[in-house]
Amino acid sequence: MNNTKIISEVNPVCSIIERNDQTIIGIKRHFTPESIYGPNQMVSSLLHDGTISLMEKRIKNSNPGFYVGLYRPGEDGCFTYIFGYEVESMGQLPEGLPDYTCLKMTGSGLYARILNDGGSFYDTGDYFTGAFHTDTPYVYENGKESIHTINLKGELLYADEPIKKPLTPDEQHASVKIKIISLPPLTVLGIKTDKIHGLDLINQFFSQNAKTVDSIDCRKPYVQDYIGSSWHESGTQYSFFGGQILNSGLLTPGLDTIIIPGGLYAKISQNEINNDNPAFLRQCIQEIGLNCGHPLVKDDTRQYFIKFHQGHSSSIYYPIMDDVNTRVE
């Protein structure tokens, strides 16, 4: 159904559009940073286990062959995802629908429509939290859902992200959240090296070491996410990537264990799905610093680290001094 108007074309993969309201019926699920199962797996299972086809037999899909996912961020990395399809405007839902069925009206207004030409379910997020901010004057608008259009195979065709033009410097980074937290020491098992860094190190870990780390019993409470860090020591840059475990005394051949010191940290996260890519957060930190209503003082005796919540997002943890009332000059 035609419910959009193109305002401008940014480039071949992105357009600025105006959307009208749509009525969506779908299955609603709640996700947290501890969730291993994500929207991609949710879409695939609901399409293949017969849930969506059962719904379509009871309530007509207004756009046959096409489906809709609605992503709405919550607090502390939690979010909801509704997967279903467009229907004619209707009142109360009939009886006999699958568990967790809901009716939802999408918001009208300005959106960035990003075509998915990369193949991955979250490739649109890489563009939206990256080059989009230099290609356009728009930012993510809090309080609205991201709207995904999905085909019968469960492939994301394009994402409509709610946007607006920021009126103040604070609105430029309004989707970035900074929260002061305390952490105990974290024991992490993985790869420490000065030979490779960044994505190369991550790829090596998942191709050679992830199965070993994730199979360890004391890893199970944290198996949903991974930790990366880098630091300079005696003139050499080291990088580490691995998974948190409970046992600080565990020795595993071919793997290294590091202890991340406990204490106060500034946790930096964002409302947008960033596909485990912290690049936008790093850029924001460079532009706005660690200001969240407190004059935070970075603790240079500890290293910052990144938590990668697989299939969801990433968060950066910067160590700060216990005395948050002291300002760095």
Rank of each mutant, 00 (worst) to 15 (best):
T187F: 14
P185I: 00
Q208T: 15
Y238K: 05
I181T: 11
I181V: 15
I227R: 09
Q208H: 12
T187S: 15
S234T: 04
A210N: 08
S207Y: 05
G190M: 06
A210L: 00
L199E: 06
G228F: 02
T193R: 01
H232M: 13
Y238A: 06
L186R: 09
Y226K: 10
T236R: 14
D225M: 07
A210M: 02
Y238G: 08
E233Y: 11
H232F: 12
V223S: 15
G228Y: 02
L189V: 00
V188T: 06
V213E: 05
I227D: 01
G235W: 09
K177E: 15
I196Y: 01
Y238S: 07
N203F: 01
Y238P: 08
S207E: 11
V223E: 13
G198V: 09
P185R: 06
L199C: 02
T212H: 07
K177D: 13
D194C: 06
P221N: 14
G228P: 09
V223T: 13
T212R: 14
G198K: 03
L183K: 12
P184T: 10
V223K: 14
H232E: 11
Q208E: 15
S234P: 01
S230E: 15
L201K: 05
Q204I: 02
F205L: 03
G190N: 04
I180F: 03
T193L: 05
S229V: 09
I191W: 04
I216F: 08
C218P: 11
N203Y: 07
S215M: 08
R219W: 07
I216Q: 06
L201Q: 00
E233A: 06
G228W: 06
Q224L: 03
A210D: 07
T187E: 03
P185S: 11
Q237P: 02
K211A: 14
K195D: 07
Y238I: 05
Q208A: 11
P184F: 03
T236F: 03
L201R: 04
I191E: 02
L189F: 04
E233C: 12
N209R: 13
I178S: 11
D200M: 01
D200Y: 02
